[in-house]
Design a protein around this nucleic acid. Structure first.
Length: 181
DNA sequence: TTCGCGATGGCCT
DNA sequence: GGCCATCGCGAAA
């Protein structure tokens, strides 16, 4: 089932948790690529020193301030793209970073863990041209939730690599499915 | 197994 | 000019 606007227009921590086990779907050059989301991370509000929005509303962060259900994509280290989904109401900067996925299908039904935000965007052919893309239309890039999602055990921990974020660095805003398979 | 480092470019002081 | 929500490689252990 295609996730719609109302799913994203909720508290960011709740969205981050609920995205686990959902499927990221990419249509690229006529082919469909699917991957199950296994790790997410929340970035919420200007008071969150780990968030780009802590620097205020700029051209780069504009998507984070936009309506929920859109993609916020930016380049890092000159070579990797990060995929986030924008949450909560318009003009409130918040998003969920997709940190890891598990690929499905493919030849011999083999699956592959893609742990790392830069790896999965490469695999799914996601780049900055999709920044601001509407995820609720089922076009090019969207997210689906299985009708009956398995009850996964979820681990909560501090976000990765944000040592610079002072008192925000210990907030347990990283969510992942533990004991996968 | 962990550690250190270079690649590489956009964004913000 | 410095830093960064990263990754893959090769060396050390």
């Amino acid at each position: 089932m295609l996730l719609k606007r109302s799913f994203y227009n909720r508290h960011t921590l709740q969205v981050a948790r609920d995205l686990l086990g959902c499927f990221l779907v990419r249509k690229y050059k006529g082919k469909i690529i699917r991957a199950m989301i296994t790790e997410t991370e929340a970035y919420r509000g200007e008071y969150d020193l780990a968030s780009h929005a802590s620097k205020g509303r700029t051209e780069r962060t504009e998507a984070m301030y936009g309506a929920p259900g859109h993609a916020y994509i930016y380049m890092i280290y000159g070579m990797y793209f990060m995929l986030n989904v924008v949450t909560e109401e318009k003009d409130f900067p918040a998003a969920v970073l997709i940190r890891a996925v598990k690929t499905v299908g493919g030849k011999n039904f083999c699956s592959l863990r893609l742990d790392g935000p830069g790896k999965l965007t490469k695999y799914l052919h996601i780049d900055k041209s999709l920044n601001g893309h509407n995820l609720t239309r089922g076009d090019k890039l969207w997210i689906e939730c299985p009708a009956e999602k398995k009850k996964y055990k979820i681990t909560r921990s501090p976000r990765r690599r944000i040592e610079y974020a002072k008192h925000c660095k210990d907030w347990k805003w990283n969510f992942q499915i533990s004991a996968l398979d």
